[in-house]
Design a protein around this nucleic acid. Sequence first.
DNA 1: TCGGCTTTTACAACTTTTTTACAAGTTGCG
DNA 2: CGCAACTTGTAAAAAAGTTGTAAAAGCCGA
Lengths: 114, 114
Amino acid sequence: MYRDEHLSIEQTGPVELDSRRLTLTRKEFELLTMLARNAGEIVPRDILLSTVWGYCEGTRTRTLDVHIRRLRRKLGEFGDTYIQTVFGVGYRFERYRAARPLLTYSMPAYAATA
Amino acid sequence: MYRDEHLSIEQTGPVELDSRRLTLTRKEFELLTMLARNAGEIVPRDILLSTVWGYCEGTRTRTLDVHIRRLRRKLGEFGDTYIQTVFGVGYRFERYRAARPLLTYSMPAYAATA
DNA sequence: TCGGCTTTTACAACTTTTTTACAAGTTGCG
DNA sequence: CGCAACTTGTAAAAAAGTTGTAAAAGCCGA
């Protein structure tokens, strides 16, 4: 479902982070897969609350925030990169992108053909 | 069906643990083989209850837990290693993996080709 | 009926989920 | 800017749910 050089998420089988099994609880797993399936797109809070929890709109609860926090923590140093907050709307799973070294003056763009 | 340096499980013939025959009851044997056939994968409680016991979904019983306990006990010190609980889902038979000694300075990685 | 196997019961122990309470961050407006 | 209103982050407690365990009760075939 999602895979990059650090993280692997499949519906069947354990989530792996840097080749280590991540032990997620059911809710954590459902939340993560819901986000990862829609990688790159915002998933609104009320959609998460209705699909993962079955709550109907308007339910006042902080449980989503708490689960997001635990997911981020289990994703380690990448937690905040993978799971981004979209203020007032929801969350977005962001694909991993290795930081490319910036081109500098000593290496002009036209000379930097990969 | 399953074999490692400690445990041997065959459909025909007795289960052996460290070269000793284990006397399992029928239900214990069916439960163990069901798990061992799916080694490495989670077998949900309701699947176990339906295949081994013929119970239909929703039956409220603790008999599975009790059998798991007796199996674990008969598997001795490896019981908890072989039969793992997946909370809220079921159980997983885990293959035995001998702990590999850590590579030390005296044995550099490049010399340690398996 | 006896003995072994299986199931239930009852409660302890444990894990997960939700709530609570407050801190910290964000937004928009005068 | 600086404040008020609102949203999200976080830790810790409470609640809910699941599994472990011992012991008793039930079942069934020899």
